[in-house]
Simulated assay, not measured.
Amino acid sequence: MNFTNLPQLVDMRGKLKSKGTYSKRTKAITHRVWHHSLTKKNLAGSDAASFADYHVGTLGWPGCGYALVIEPKNLIDTPNGKRARIVYSNDINNRTYHVGDSNQFSLGICVAGDYRYDTMDEATLASIAELHAALVKDGIGQYDKAHNEMPGYSWKACCEYNYREAFDWKGAKTPTKPAPAPDVYTIQEGDTLWSIAHKDGTGGVQVADLIKANPGINPTKLKIGQKINFGIAKDFVAKPGNVIKPDIKVEVTPKAIVPYPGIVLKEGAKGMKEVDIKRVQRASGMAEKDVDGKYGPKTTKVVKAYQKRHGLSQDGRVGPDTWNRMF
């Protein structure tokens, strides 16, 4: 394979965090799907190992959802100059989770970074172009798409960089812009409430909002084809305390102005309120079954993981910096 011979590629298949295995593809790869991570490219959490930790530990997936991850913060000296490292994280024949019902025929490629704020550097652009050329030469895929250009994901703000400018693209240079989040969303393969919701995207909707908007939903047992209310969840974010269709009353504080409780939340601290701890547990991505309002080792662990993903001091405590980043 030409792509595995790229000098900036590191084979980490079987070396990243996993829990079980992905099944093998039953269809040929026709699409190369480009993602970004929404984590600033130079931070500790912007690499394949961190993505695998999040996908396994928070989303409950068997392993990293991408077959290939480009890491701008890790530069490799090659005969052609410096290149962003490419991590081969999952065998291309594995049906990893990254684009729902299109997983069978789609290869997931993630360029680490938050390109609403980060700029695309030359070493990363070169790795994108060289990886793309090698995949084309290997006959892996026929079409290039962004996450939001795949069926059912038009509302995804992914990817925020213009992947088409990085290689010899034959069509229009401007990718499709994300559409508004739908009022009703149909669950696809690999979807979880944690992968659907995102504090920095999708109108600010978070897991807690989706749970409130869908009474009786089991967040750990979503089924393919299941319908969930997304529009109502958006109303929760925008209209605190209102009666929201269909006749659901909720007392909600807007995410952007949830006041800091005035004390550092940590194991053993006195004066903490259960409601604040639950907010932290949900914002950190803790599974709903474990949200108990108690600041124990599990909460410390998920807070540390959250802090790592967002470039904060990883002490497992929620002081003003972590609280303000969450809310």
Rank of each mutant, 00 (worst) to 15 (best):
residue 105 F to S: 14
residue 93 N to A: 09
residue 236 F to Q: 02
residue 31 H to V: 14
residue 20 G to W: 08
residue 245 K to F: 12
residue 234 K to R: 15
residue 265 L to W: 08
residue 207 V to T: 10
residue 148 N to C: 15
residue 271 G to H: 11
residue 261 P to W: 05
residue 236 F to K: 10
residue 53 D to I: 00
residue 281 Q to A: 04
residue 176 T to C: 11
residue 217 I to G: 05
residue 285 G to I: 03
residue 46 S to I: 00
residue 224 I to P: 00
residue 247 D to L: 09
residue 71 E to M: 07
residue 144 D to W: 02
residue 207 V to D: 12
residue 56 V to P: 01
residue 221 K to I: 00
residue 101 D to M: 09
residue 152 G to Y: 06
residue 52 A to C: 10
residue 214 N to R: 13
residue 83 R to H: 12
residue 320 P to Q: 08
residue 89 S to F: 03
residue 199 K to F: 12
residue 276 D to I: 08
residue 297 P to C: 01
residue 30 T to G: 10
residue 148 N to Q: 13
residue 278 K to V: 00
residue 34 W to E: 03
residue 72 P to F: 07
residue 20 G to M: 07
residue 102 S to L: 13
residue 252 V to N: 06
residue 190 G to C: 07
residue 145 K to A: 07
residue 94 N to Y: 08
residue 219 P to H: 11
residue 259 P to Y: 03
residue 235 D to V: 01
residue 163 Y to K: 13
residue 47 D to T: 02
residue 274 E to C: 01
residue 44 A to D: 08
residue 277 I to N: 09
residue 43 L to V: 02
residue 47 D to A: 05
residue 151 P to T: 04
residue 104 Q to P: 07
residue 117 Y to H: 13
residue 181 A to E: 12
residue 93 N to P: 07
residue 157 A to G: 04
residue 157 A to M: 13
residue 167 F to V: 01
residue 94 N to E: 15
residue 155 W to M: 03
residue 88 Y to L: 02
residue 92 I to G: 04
residue 125 L to R: 08
residue 57 G to E: 10
residue 111 V to F: 02
residue 204 G to V: 01
residue 13 R to T: 04
residue 97 Y to C: 10
residue 131 L to D: 09
residue 245 K to S: 03
residue 99 V to H: 08
residue 284 S to E: 13
residue 279 R to S: 06
residue 258 V to Y: 03
residue 133 A to D: 14
residue 291 V to T: 11
residue 292 D to C: 03
residue 184 V to F: 12
residue 216 G to P: 10
residue 183 D to S: 13
residue 222 L to C: 13
residue 46 S to A: 09
residue 216 G to D: 09
residue 194 W to P: 03
residue 186 T to P: 05
residue 29 I to R: 15
residue 200 D to S: 10
residue 37 S to G: 01
residue 322 T to W: 07
residue 83 R to G: 00
residue 296 G to H: 04
residue 269 A to V: 12
residue 159 C to K: 04
residue 160 E to M: 15
residue 99 V to K: 12
residue 209 D to Y: 00
residue 174 T to M: 09
residue 129 A to F: 05
residue 93 N to M: 05
residue 189 E to I: 12
residue 24 K to M: 05
residue 178 P to R: 12
residue 228 I to F: 06
residue 73 K to A: 14
residue 110 C to G: 00
